[in-house]
Design a binder for these strands. Sequence first.
DNA 1: GTCTATATTTCGATAGAC
DNA 2: GTCTATCGAAATATAGAC
Lengths: 213, 213
Amino acid sequence: MVETGIAQGSERRSEILMRATDAFVTHGYSGTSMADLARAIGIRKASLYHHFPSKEALFIACVTEGFEGAVRRLEALRSDDTLADPGRIRAAMEEIYRINLTTPVGRMSPLIAEVAPTIPEVAQAFHNGFIARHYATVTGMIEDGIARGSFAAVDPLGMQHLIFGPVITLALSREMTASFPNRDDLYPVDRIRKTHIDLILKLLIKPESSDGR
Amino acid sequence: MVETGIAQGSERRSEILMRATDAFVTHGYSGTSMADLARAIGIRKASLYHHFPSKEALFIACVTEGFEGAVRRLEALRSDDTLADPGRIRAAMEEIYRINLTTPVGRMSPLIAEVAPTIPEVAQAFHNGFIARHYATVTGMIEDGIARGSFAAVDPLGMQHLIFGPVITLALSREMTASFPNRDDLYPVDRIRKTHIDLILKLLIKPESSDGR
DNA sequence: GTCTATATTTCGATAGAC
DNA sequence: GTCTATCGAAATATAGAC
């Protein structure tokens, strides 16, 4: 168990974590110094050590706290009775795009990959706490739809990769091309999301059904 | 123009680049020191400066050389007359999986994203030289197939993301979970590739045609 | 809780012998 | 072309005043 500093849930703590997370996902773990972090937060380097005992403890807090809300929001969609199965998948994919393209959680995978060889526990915590639960929720939605007869009998594992893959890669591509003047022409989020969702539903809706075209 | 050291094409040079690239993609740019690189190559740090004038020059050489062969191999598939359109897409996807999961080129995107804010030229060079050409080749294959009447009139941009997204994300996921004992159960390459290719062909083959099921 | 000041290690890079 | 030795800057972290 790693010591992570002042009490969780504190106002000041989440303020610090927000700014630190933003710096980490932009420049990487090794590429972000404690001086950089202190500057981003607006305090001196030594003061930062009052809140967190080490850079590693601060980093672990950044990548293991704060995604609970995102996971629960997706899980709530699965048990939302007001949605039909196609509408549920559509809503889930909109949420997956939102979380991966407009919050730092979606940019954390490369960060985790960077530190995984040296801090393997952090990779475990992030994968089990965020990625695996997101995957399981969507896979469950597809299996529910198949069981209810709304969806064709597709392979849930294949669909899972077809749903998440393009979103995560899009977030990475946009990060990689952040300095390009034509980034929004190369990777137009709205258009890509719309055609992506339509193609997924085309695969899920049974061929004999008519509402899939 | 950045000075990149000893002559390109040299035997010793590509040996150094191979080992350096492997270190960079595993630990990131800032996470890899010149001492680390020298150790991986098997020489002393000072000797490394005989081959490359700076860490940045060595890094730029790593991410801008060496992918030419991969690009050309995919482009050759597009103009291969012995292949029918579905078989061509199938062969292209096999090659995309191979290059992204068994060579370092496929693990470079997170690396590029890390240094993009500080060395934007390297992001431009990698995107234009590798990513954009891969995308254009596959999009061209799809457009050729539509023009020849082999494929349904799908949106090439949407298909492009549906083809590359899952592969790049799979490479990233496997990197992130490299230390997990159950990585191959979480992300089984062969099974994911097979179902992915089958689903893509299902979308591409016209509904009235019978060879897509 | 935040600060100045500093200890200690590691970084990228250079000098110069062989 | 490779080495030992070393420089100056920047890294993580700590001591102690306020």
